Amino acid sequence: MADTTETHAALADETFMSAADLQNYMEKIAMAHAKEVVDAMGQATLAREQLAKTLSEPMELTPEALAEISGRLQVKLRAAAERGDTEIMVMRFPNLLCTDHGRAINNTLEGWPDTLTGRPRQAYELWRDRLKPAGYGLKAMIVDWPNGMPGDVGFFLTWTRK
């Protein structure tokens, strides 16, 4: 059996981490994790800004583009119907693409479509001109609340079950 003093001496030598060293190590780990979070937030902000820039520019709605949009939408609608759903989110965009940052949508004010710009405006017009006459509804709402403030807007295509 080893002598207790020998055990304490072995634990106190330089190869064993002291409590202060362990605390410093823990602080370095915490700082590394915090840096990762900050870096990820920066990347997310850049991606969000790029998305807003892209969506702010209307796209050319050629017959080919409309056929592609219609085809993708039909696939999503069929999948939703098979699940028994009566709505699907068809678009999500930063509230920066509303002239009032989504205030009218959040408060369900009459005339909220007039606040839309860019591709969200085009999506609304596509619904109004083609999908509404076919019996589909459109619901717009704020879908996230970063730091308690309105964030992204979601467009939901709705229909009723008979």
Score class of each variant (00 low, 15 high):
Asn107Gly: 00
Asp13Cys: 07
Ala12Gln: 07
Gly84Phe: 07
Ala65Leu: 08
Gln122Pro: 03
Asp129Gly: 00
Gly135Trp: 06
Arg83Gly: 00
Glu36Tyr: 00
Val75Gly: 00
Pro133Cys: 08
Arg48Asp: 13
Gly102Leu: 06
Glu82Leu: 13
Leu66Asp: 06
Gly111Leu: 07
Glu27Val: 12
Gly71Pro: 00
Gly84Lys: 03
Asn95Leu: 05
Thr45Asp: 14
Leu126His: 10
Leu157Thr: 06
Ser70Gln: 12
Asp3Arg: 05
Arg103Met: 09
Leu73Gly: 05
Trp127Tyr: 08
Ala47Leu: 13
Asp85Ser: 12
Ala104Met: 12
Arg78Gln: 14
Leu109Lys: 10
Ala140Ser: 14
Trp159Asn: 09
Thr86Ile: 02
Ala30Glu: 15
Arg121Trp: 07
His8Glu: 10
Lys76Ser: 14
Arg78Val: 07
Glu64Pro: 00
Leu66Ser: 08
Leu157Tyr: 07
Thr99Asp: 12
Arg92Asp: 10
Arg78Phe: 04
Asp13Thr: 03
Gly111Pro: 14
Leu77Trp: 04
Ala9His: 08
Leu73Pro: 03
Glu14Ser: 11
Ile29Cys: 07
Leu61Ala: 07
Thr115Ser: 14
Ile69Met: 10
Arg78Ala: 09
Met149Arg: 14
Ala34Val: 00
Glu87Phe: 06
Lys28Met: 08
Ser56Arg: 12
Gly135Asn: 08
Val153Arg: 03
Asn147Trp: 02
Lys28Leu: 10
Thr5Ile: 11
Glu68Gln: 12
Ala19Thr: 13
His101Val: 00
Tyr25Gly: 09
Lys28Val: 01
Thr86Asp: 15
Lys53Tyr: 04
Met59Glu: 15
Glu68Tyr: 02
Met91Asp: 06
Met59Ala: 08
Leu77Gln: 09
Met149Ser: 11
Gln122Tyr: 04
Ala30Asn: 11
Val143Gln: 09
Lys132Tyr: 08
Asp129Trp: 02
Gln43Arg: 12
Thr158Cys: 11
Arg161Ile: 11
Phe16Glu: 14
His101Met: 12
Leu46Cys: 02
Thr86Ala: 09
Arg119Asp: 01
Phe156Ala: 09
Met59Leu: 11
Gly151Cys: 06
Thr45Tyr: 03
Leu73Met: 15
Glu110Leu: 09
Leu97Lys: 01
Leu157Lys: 04
Gly137Ala: 08
Met149Val: 06
Pro150Thr: 06
Leu116Ile: 02
Val75Phe: 03
Asn147Gln: 13
Thr158Glu: 13
Ala52Lys: 08
Ala32Asp: 13
Thr15His: 10
Thr115Asn: 01
Glu14Ile: 06
Met91Thr: 01
Lys35Asp: 14
Met1Lys: 02
Phe155His: 02
